[in-house]
Amino acid sequence: MRYLGLHLRARRIPAALAAAASGTLVLWTVVAVFSEVPDADISLVTLLVLLLAAVVAPTLGGHDDALDRTSALRWLPRRAAHLLVALVIILALVLVTLLTGARFGPAALVLRDAAGLLGLTALGAVALGTARSWFLPLAWTLPVVMTPFAGASVPLQALTWQTQPHDNRTAAVVATVIAVAGLVAYGVRGSALRDIRSAA
């Protein structure tokens, strides 16, 4: 257990958990205080999940990518477990609000967005490195939240999958594809090498 504890600290997990809990509390408070209905608006639900996915981003790599790479550990199952545990924690944090007077749901939408946005973060880590891994989910989701799409065009529904209703099949398929791609790419390759000397 001692070494798992060291690993969690090296991956900044305590700070990430604190940030995730605080972020959830702040958004929950906003809805609890200012909303006239108990259910949070879909854009707020997506924003909360986006925030939580971004909080996971710095935990996807250690403090030195080069030293991590020289490790003899079997990384694939560890990386996959990292993403799955992150998904469970995000779901737990968001879905616990369903028991309160300010609800972030429904559960199917939270699951879809959490899986898809975590997948995007993981793809970001593989392509851009740990430190910039949150660029990808943020760059895709913020414009979608600001300009939601409610039409029947399937390509546009796919493009705005984060804010589609929870029973939209296209959005579910897109989120699943991204989640699986992120899981496989990050599991096999890990974060891109972006350490101090990588530009040399």
Partner: peptide, 19 residues
């Protein structure tokens, strides 16, 4: 993995968890 178990490496500069 087999080779890595027998390797030691000090990079020119390295990152670490400061705490």
């Amino acid at each position: 993995r087999q080779a890595r178990r027998g390797l030691g490496y000090l990079p020119q500069e390295f990152g670490f968890y400061p705490r």
